[in-house]
């Protein structure tokens, strides 16, 4: 169980990364924290010809709280963000949910943007980006663009990133003062979610975002609902998610959790 051979590029400037991606296209993979990619390399599920290591680029390791958004560079590790003193104030939902991402030993290396790039449908970070309506900052030698979370995740492990683009950063809208809540059910602590839910108060009501069920995190905005109206809304949403069976859970179980946890979280947020 050793990786297939690849060239290794240690980038010393962002331009080198972009040039590398431009030249190598789909044959290249960006190596950040490596917590998903390296396992796939070891199992030979992924066989890029070139790995471009971006972790020596200090310009990518910044967290900036500016103009109503928190921008997190591609080199920022999950543990770094979790330890950022402004986190609870600016991104309370992330403060709640980041401890659910993997384990201490993987958060210490894994990056925020790396998890988004990997786009595992059960991972917490894509869910959080969708829940908060964040943006992914993409950059290539051709252009720079920002893609909203709902546009970025297009399928299981598939994103809107073109092959020559680097996820340079991600930005989350800074906290607007509304309540938020997060809950996850996994087989064991630290496992990928069977169902993860985040509820966020919105100016008109509440947004519920669900991960682990569909191919991408799915969000739904509702006005302030309760009682049977909320039950019906959650039931409809649960059925729309196209849940599936696997060795860890059944589709029905997933829908049940969406209905029950969704209701609990919305109750917490709207109370």
């Amino acid at each position: 169980m050793k990786p297939a051979a690849f060239d290794y590029i240690r980038a010393e400037a962002v331009d080198e990364v972009l040039e590398g991606l431009s030249k190598e296209g789909g044959n290249a993979r960006v190596l950040a924290g490596g917590q998903s990619l390296m396992a796939m390399l070891n199992m030979r599920l992924a066989r890029p010809k070139v790995l471009i290591d971006i972790m020596r680029l200090t310009e990518l390791s910044r967290i900036e709280d500016r103009a109503g958004a928190v921008t997190i560079g591609a080199g920022v590790r999950q543990a770094t963000l979790l330890a950022w003193p402004e986190l609870t104030r600016t991104l309370p939902l992330l403060a709640l949910a980041l401890p659910w991402v993997g384990h201490v030993q993987t958060r210490s290396r894994g990056t925020i943007c790396g998890s988004l790039a990997h786009a595992d449908p059960s991972a917490e970070l894509p869910l959080l980006l969708v829940a908060l309506g964040g943006e992914v900052h993409l950059r290539s030698t051709r252009r720079r663009r920002r893609v909203s979370a709902s546009e970025f995740f297009v399928g299981m492990m598939a994103t809107a990133r073109a092959e020559d683009e680097l996820i340079e950063a991600v930005s989350f809208p800074a906290h607007n003062g509304g309540r938020c809540a997060f809950r996850e059910v996994a087989r064991r602590h630290g496992d990928f979610a069977i169902v993860a839910c985040a509820a966020v108060a919105t100016p008109t009501g509440v947004r519920l975002t669900v991960g682990g069920v569909a191919d991408v995190p799915m969000a739904r905005d509702w006005p302030c609902l309760d009682g049977s109206a909320l039950d019906d809304a959650l039931n409809g949403f649960a059925h729309e998610l196209d849940a599936r069976d696997d060795v860890h859970a059944t589709a029905r179980y997933r829908r049940d959790l969406v209905r029950i946890i969704g209701r609990d979280l919305i109750g917490e947020v709207l109370q």
Binding site: V185, R187, I194, D231, D232, N235, G236, H239, H248, A249, T250, R252, Y253, R255, D256, R259
Partner: peptide, 16 residues
């Protein structure tokens, strides 16, 4: 858990 839930819970709410 999903197995136990399946054995214990009643019928699922119908889709809308």
């Amino acid at each position: 858990p999903a197995k136990l839930a399946g054995l214990t819970r009643g019928p699922e709410p119908e889709p809308p």
